[in-house]
Design a protein around this nucleic acid. Structure first.
Lengths: 166, 166
DNA sequence: TTTCATGCAAAATGTTTGCACACGA
DNA sequence: TCGTGTGCAAACATTTTGCATGAAA
């Protein structure tokens, strides 16, 4: 019936190379900070927000190597370049890999805030059918299924915790 | 194959009555401001944010009848009471009727920011199948299909406008 | 007459911007 | 060098909070 698994997608260029291409096409420059950020962002496949990225950078490259405004500016550029996808979750922006990663959606645990990815070909069909029905030119979609993950279900009811992403 | 239309749902109590019930169940009180807000919110079926509600209140009930913090507090309560649904869209919270309104999702026009509702029974099936697959206890979901609405498609390319919800 | 709700002002977030200096091409 | 990028500090936008006052029940 359906296939909810996620494979990765082959890409010709590394994220960094792809980003350099993007920069060139816009007459922008590769810098020390941009390199650090791209490396950091693609060093692991996880969801993160601006604060977390800043913290990761601090740990890997040293405090103050990249400033907060630069991180925010870069996140926007990485989204424009097609390397990252952005989503709004509970009032803040959360990012994940887009380049080299297949289309997918998320299960969101309301207790521990974990995000689990899944893929559904059927969903895409529905999406396109709905788009056609309303004569929208569809560019994409975002589906978040909210609920309680198995781990949190098991744990005897405890107080819900403040936001902290995995 | 699918049915993307939206009917309304019969409910026994008016939103106000339903909210009073909710308040009582929590030992809270019905006040002048809460009444004004519930009336305003359910006076038309549209998506709105805190600022817009505040503005609507100012026009209907007079400036300063309800303060900004009260509006924010009430929005939270209305969500808790099941009268409103909240969604994050472009960094701010947008609300819509939940009580007396069937489950649905949205098409979002990236040009004019219009939100169009649709319903899909199939989507719910996928959602539940995915939940089962990952052993999530599913509580709900949020799907936003992004694209360009027919009106904006027709209009010869113009500069994208700043945010302004319908 | 006892809570609970409100308004005010201030604070807390999360994100963006102006500008002088630093740096990549 | 020339123009772009960066960091800093400040501005912003949105939402939340502490606290004294006001109003339901």
């Amino acid at each position: 019936m359906s296939d909810f698994s996620l494979e990765s997608v082959d890409v010709a260029l590394s994220p960094l190379a792809r980003f350099e291409e993007f920069l060139q096409s816009r007459g922008k420059r590769m810098t020390q900070q941009r390199r650090l950020i791209v490396d950091e962002v693609f060093s692991r496949h996880e969801h993160f927000d601006a604060d977390e990225l800043l913290e990761m950078l601090a740990q890997t490259s040293g405090r103050g190597k990249v400033s907060r405004p630069t991180v925010y500016r870069m996140l926007g550029e990485l989204v424009d370049a097609g390397l990252l996808r952005k989503m709004d979750l509970g009032g803040r922006a959360v990012y994940e890999h887009d380049y080299g990663y297949p289309q997918h959606d998320h299960l969101h645990c309301q207790k521990c805030n974990k995000l689990v990815e899944f893929h559904s070909e059927e969903l895409k069909k529905i999406r396109d059918a709905v788009g056609r029905e309303h004569r929208f030119r569809v560019n994409g979609h975002r589906l978040i299924i909210t609920g309680i993950c198995p781990e949190c279900s098991k744990a005897r009811k405890r107080r819900s915790r403040p936001l902290d992403l995995v």
